[in-house]
Every structure is written in structure tokens, then in C-alpha cells.
């Protein structure tokens, strides 16, 4: 029974199959919201309301010719897309979406899984950098350098922002943090600043406008993905979709009180809360123009990081008051 349960967990829910289906739905949602904000229709043709469009795009890309540049580091170039997908899917398993029994920690819920999740979410950035660097294209190299520069900008504010609810809850375990805020919903409010910072940082992590600098098409063609085509590009796109779901799930678990109430109700919580976060992300994407790489670093270190520290200070004081 336990084996079956584990297999289900790995492959069906919230494992690969669910993540694939849900992330393509989220991509559709994001595209539709983005399009409506721009006075467009967005996907309409495939499936009802264009729901199947992201899947159609994925399948079409799979069927496209796959070119590996002669000068590229072929091994690395081939293996990185699959590796990236594996990393974000593994990160997806750590989301506390199954009804966890807090008393009996299972293999995906343990003290410190927050750190592991954050670490797994940082890996795709490095993978993209390696992918860009191994394709040896000038545009890719510039894109790769931009990926790393941005990483140093947004990673610290993100970690600091996620730290503050964890400190207030006094735990490093996602399920416990969620349970803490389910018990005391009012304590979500002091963390709002951290939530805002985290949303901006996640936007940067996902390389969406205004942070789509590494693959800004009008500047450096496809940037990091200039040389990627066919299956590899499809896997990278899926990786970004899943990363979007996982990081919005992380924000939902840490800031919005997790997904309580068993498999069904928990699922409803997951959908509503992640879609809310994705809606915010789409809103930012529609309302801003791409900024320059130096402006990203300035934004992160001049505003986001100090604000995150301020938030930590507030939370530590609050914790002292409460105890």
C-alpha cells in the first residue's frame, strides 16, 4: 500500500502527470490573462477556449527538427533540458499538497524541506546558464551572463522574504509552516511585504517581463535559447511552466496558508491559491516594460533586499512580542 501510495505520489499526483497537466493549464491561464489585459483574445482555437493550446504547442515543438550546433558541447547540450525538467519536477514533489500527517514525516516532508525546495528552484537558473554557455553562440553567451547577473540580484531578496514567515512559524518544514498559518490566519498579514518582494523575485526567477532580459528577443535574439530547437526547447518551456507552478505553490504554502483539508479540498486550495499568484505575475508582466540588466541589480539590492531585511526585523520583533 505504502509503495503504491509513493508511486502515485511520484507519477500521478502531485508527480509528473499532474504537474504536466496543471502547468500547461497554468500557461493557458497566464496567456489568456496576459492577452485580455492587452485587449487580445489569447488562445481560442485548440480545445474549448483554447485550453489545449499549450499542449498543442508542446507536441508541435517535439515534432520539430532538433539541431545541435557543431561547436557546442554536445553532451552537456543534450542532457541539460532533461536535467532541468527533472529538477523542477522533483521540487514539485516537495509541495505539501497531499494531506500530510504532521506527526509522521514522510520522505517528501521533513524538517528543512523549505531550504531544499529553494535550492532545487535555484538549480534551473544554473542549468540555463550552462545550456547557454555550452551552445557557444554569442547571443547565448550574453544571455548566459545575464542569467547569472540576475541570479545574484533576485536570489537574496527571495530567500530573505521566504525566511520571515518561516521564522514566525518557527519551523523549516513547509507543512508545519502552513499548519501554523492555518491555525492563526491573522498572522499572514504581517508577512504581506515579504509576499510582495517574493512575487517580484519569482517573476525575475521565471524570466518574465520586466525581467525577460536573458532571452530578450529584440536585443539578443533568443538569448539563452538561441541554439535550442525541437524537443530540447519543448522541455525547457515545460520546465519554465512547471517552475512557475512550483514557485507559486511555494508562495501559496508559505504566505497564503498552504493547502489544508485532505486531498480534495486541498486540491481546491492549491488551484485557487496558485492561480491567484499566477494572476499577480501576469499582471506585472502586462503592466511593465523590460528593464535593463543594471537596473535589475539596482532594484534588487537598493530596494528589495533592504525591504526584506526590514521585514525580517519586524517579524523578529513580532515574534518576541507574541511569545
Amino acid at each position: 500500500m505504502a509503495v503504491l501510495r509513493t508511486l502515485l505520489y511520484l507519477f500521478v499526483y502531485p508527480g509528473l502527470l499532474f504537474l504536466f497537466a496543471y502547468s500547461t493549464f497554468c500557461e493557458w491561464f497566464d496567456r489568456k490573462v496576459f492577452a485580455r489585459l492587452q485587449n487580445r483574445m489569447g488562445p481560442t482555437h485548440t480545445g474549448s477556449f483554447g485550453l489545449l493550446q499549450p499542449i498543442a504547442d508542446f507536441i508541435k515543438l517535439l515534432a520539430k527538427e532538433d539541431v545541435v550546433p557543431a561547436a557546442a558541447d554536445k553532451g552537456l547540450f543534450r542532457v541539460l533540458p532533461a536535467f532541468g525538467l527533472a529538477v523542477v519536477s522533483a521540487a514539485g514533489l516537495l509541495l505539501p499538497v497531499w494531506n500530510f500527517d504532521l506527526a509522521v514525516p514522510s520522505f517528501t516532508s521533513f524538517q528543512g524541506d523549505l531550504i531544499v525546495l529553494l535550492y532545487l528552484l535555484s538549480l534551473p537558473t544554473l542549468i540555463i546558464f550552462l545550456a547557454a554557455w555550452s551552445s557557444t553562440n554569442y547571443f547565448s553567451s550574453i544571455g548566459g551572463a545575464r542569467v547569472l547577473t540576475m541570479l545574484f540580484g533576485y536570489e537574496v531578496p527571495l530567500f530573505l522574504a521566504v525566511l520571515s514567515p518561516a521564522i514566525l512559524a518557527g519551523s523549516w518544514r513547509l507543512a508545519e509552516i502552513a499548519a501554523f498559518y492555518q491555525a492563526k490566519p491573522l498572522l499572514i498579514l504581517p508577512n504581506l511585504l515579504a509576499f510582495a518582494i517574493a512575487v517580484v523575485a519569482v517573476q525575475a526567477k521565471l524570466e518574465r517581463c520586466p525581467f525577460d532580459i536573458p532571452h530578450a528577443e529584440t536585443e539578443i535574439v533568443g538569448g539563452t535559447f538561441t541554439e535550442f530547437s525541437g524537443k530540447k526547447l519543448a522541455l525547457f518551456r515545460l520546465m519554465f511552466d512547471i517552475e512557475m507552478v512550483v514557485s507559486s505553490g511555494l508562495l501559496a504554502a508559505v504566505f497564503l496558508g498552504g493547502f489544508p483539508g485532505g486531498a480534495l479540498v486541498g486540491f481546491a486550495h492549491l488551484v485557487v491559491k496558485t492561480l491567484f499568484v499566477i494572476f499577480l505575475l501576469s499582471l506585472i508582466r502586462a503592466l511593465t516594460s523590460r528593464i535593463r540588466i543594471d537596473q535589475v541589480v539596482t532594484l534588487a539590492w537598493k530596494y528589495l533586499a533592504p525591504l526584506a531585511v526590514l521585514q525580517l526585523l519586524i517579524i523578529i520583533l513580532l515574534k518576541g512580542l507574541l511569545s
Binding site: 492587452q38 485587449n39 520586466p210 525577460d212 502586462a286 503592466l287 511593465t288 516594460s289 523590460r290
Partner: peptide, 16 residues
């Protein structure tokens, strides 16, 4: 100009 700056919403509205 909006599109080149990555500001696609501006592009869509002006072209409409």
C-alpha cells in the same frame, strides 16, 4: 518603440 522595449501592452493598444 513599446515592443522593442519589451512593453507589449503598449504595442497592442497603440496598434489597435
Amino acid at each position: 518603440a513599446g515592443h522593442e522595449a519589451g512593453f507589449d501592452s503598449f504595442f497592442m493598444y497603440t496598434w489597435r
